[in-house]
Structure formats: C-alpha cells, structure tokens
C-alpha cells in the first residue's frame, strides 16, 4: 500500500516537470514583453543619464537577446539560484523563505476556519433542504462571495478593532513592540508553542484571526455549497436507505455513513480552494500589512523587478502540484474504490 502510494506520488511529480518548465518559460517571456524597463526604474533617479542606464542594463544582462537571457536564467533556476531582488537587494530565495511561512500560516488557518464552518453549514442545509436554515446558509455564502476581500477585511477591522476594540492593531504578524519568536519553522504559532511562550502565541493568534477570517469568508461559499450538494446526493442513495432499514441511529447515519461519503468531492474542492487562496490572498495581505509572498510579488511586479515575480509564479506552480498530489493521496486513502497503483 505504502509502496504503491510512493510510486504514484513519484510518477505524478515526474509528470509535473514539463508543466513547471512551461510555467518558467512563459513567465520569463511575459515579463520581458511587458512594458517597463527595470534599468530605468532602478537607476539613481529621473536625472540619470543614458550612459548610466546602459551600464545598469549591461550589468543586469538585459542587453543580450531574449533567448540567450532565457537559457542563462534556466541554467540558474536549475542550480537553485532564482536571482536577486532589485527592491530588497536580497537573493529572492532568502526573501521567499522568510515570507512564505507567513502566507502559508495565514492560508492554512483561513482554510481551517472555512472548513470548520462550511461543513456543518453545508450538512445543516442538506438535512433540511428548502427550509429557513437552507436559505440562511445560501445567503451567507452569497454574501461571502460577492463582498470583495478588501471590503470585508476593512469591515472586520472597523467592527472588531475600531468599534469593539477586541482585535489588536491590524498590521503585520505581531505587534511591533512584541518580539518575534525564534525562527524555527517560520510559522509563528508553531514557534511560540515550541518555545512554550503562550502569551506570545496568543498575541500572534489574535493578530492572525482577522485576516484569516476575511479569507475564510471568501471561500466559505464553494466549500459549503459543495458539502450541501454532495451530502444531498449521498442522503438520497441506496445505502442510506439500507442504514435506515437496519435501524441505525440518526447520528451514525449522518456522520459515519452520509458525511464520510459526502466529503470525498469536498476534498477535491478543498485542494483547488487552497491553491486559489494562496495566490489570491494578495488583497488580504495588503489590507492587513501581512508580510507574505503575494504582496511581495505584487510590489515586485509594480517595480518591474523580474526575479521575484518569476520566482513567485514558479513557487505557486510548485505548491499547486504538491497540493494536488497530496489531495490525490488523501483521496486514495479515504476511498477504497480508488486503486493505488
């Protein structure tokens, strides 16, 4: 079983290499054909002379033909060198490893909160279709989807920080006067817990809660609607009728029989939702000054800073592949009908 899973994972990862290669090439070319010249942007100032810009362009390798640049870039990517950010002056890899945990921590927490609410809501709606509960859930979902994240984020800040004062100052991962935890995993919640600093943990957690809820609100709809639809289908199936005919308790039928089967399609959607969130959370990161990769990439894009944008796209593609493989494996474990081979 385990060997089968590993073989499958290996095959899927190998099969994703051409796609990743394509992503690298397309982003590279795209960045080059977009208007904007980094040499102009990063020269000393508006008064910089033509020679200075030319010199800068030569030092950045931008004077060569695009195919030559591409080959050189591919060689560097293959050796793990993703270039240097012109904005921060740091190697992109360093910036990314510092910022990625912040994004992941936010996304994972948001996804967890979303699942925590959407599955019970979906189940409740499916158990009483057409009733008040069903309509309330539908309304909540519609609201979540149609209010843009920056609006809902600002609304949450207004309510919980400005009016109620429950939430801490919504800037960054931790209060500027508090000290960050030792850098073990980069996930603040885990690092604080490892250190045993529960006060710090709480501070980081309360800082995380608002942005995470903002994002969760946005993905509540697909998850809850999927749970509802799949739960309705399962509740109408023959084996649920059998379970009733055998006198199983209602709770057991709903949880062990219906929900476990209904979660299979929800699992697939969760994978897609996760990948989307990771890329689309740039607005949330901006609103909450969250030091994540998405806001980093956006800044770089505006500054025509090639290397971070290319690295960001590659990173997202890799995460997408990893998430899909993980979902595949989980699906294989959850559903015995899927052959592992």
């Amino acid at each position: 079983m385990l060997a089968g899973i590993l073989r499958r994972v290996g095959r899927r990862l190998l099969a994703s290499i051409p796609a990743l290669f394509g992503v690298v090439v397309v982003t590279f070319v795209l960045m080059r054909v977009l208007p904007g010249d980094p040499a102009v942007f990063f020269s000393s100032g508006p008064s910089a002379g033509k020679e200075e810009i030319e010199e800068l362009r030569r030092s950045m390798g931008l004077d060569r033909p695009i195919p030559v640049q591409l080959v050189r870039y591919l060689g560097e990517v293959a050796t793990g060198n993703l270039g240097r950010s012109m904005t921060t002056g740091q190697p992109v890899v360093v910036d990314m490893t510092r910022r990625l945990p912040a994004s992941l921590e936010l996304t994972c927490t948001a996804l967890f909160i979303a699942l925590l609410f959407s599955i019970p809501l979906g189940v409740a709606a499916a158990l009483r279709p057409g009733t008040a509960i069903d309509h309330i859930v539908r309304m909540l979902c519609t609201l979540g989807v149609c209010v843009p994240t920056f609006v809902s984020g600002l609304l949450l800040i207004y309510a919980f920080y400005y009016l109620l004062g429950w939430a801490p100052d919504p800037t960054g991962r931790i209060d500027i006067f508090a000290s960050a935890p030792p850098d073990i995993t980069g996930f603040f919640l885990i690092d604080f817990a490892l250190k045993g600093d529960w006060e710090g943990w709480w501070a980081a957690f309360s800082q995380l809660l608002l942005p995470a809820c903002t994002m969760a609100l946005f993905v509540l709809a697909p998850l809850a609607r999927m749970t509802r639809a799949s739960m309705l289908a399962v509740l109408g199936s023959d084996f649920i009728r059998t379970a009733h005919a055998m006198g199983l308790s209602r709770l057991r039928i709903i949880v062990a029989y219906a929900l476990r089967n209904a979660l299979l399609p929800v699992l697939t959607i969760t994978g897609i939702v996760f990948s989307t969130m990771l890329g689309a959370n740039v607005l949330v990161e901006k609103v909450f000054s969250w030091p994540g990769v998405a806001s980093y990439a956006l800044d770089a894009l505006l500054a025509s800073d090639y290397a971070p944008v290319q690295a960001f796209v590659l990173l997202m593609a890799m995460i997408f592949v990893m998430v899909n493989v993980t979902i595949d494996v989980l699906y294989g474990i959850a559903d015995p009908r899927v052959s592992v081979a």
Binding site: S237, D238, F239, R241, T242, A243, H244, A245, M246, G247, L248, S249, R250, A256, Y257, R260, N261, A334, D335, P336, R337
Partner: peptide, 28 residues
C-alpha cells in the same frame, strides 16, 4: 415516532433491496 421505528427496523422488521452493491456503504 423515530425512536420506536429505529428499534423496530433491523431487529424485528428487516428489509433487503434490489441492486445489492448500491445498497451497501461503499467505503465501509
């Protein structure tokens, strides 16, 4: 009521169905 029926079904009064494969839970 539901509770009475639940006690009855499967113990005193039982039923089998057409299409037995669909009538069994696929993941148990």
């Amino acid at each position: 009521g539901h509770a009475d029926l639940r006690r009855l079904r499967g113990s005193a009064l039982s039923m089998i169905f057409q299409n037995p494969r669909a009538a069994l839970n696929p993941i148990r």
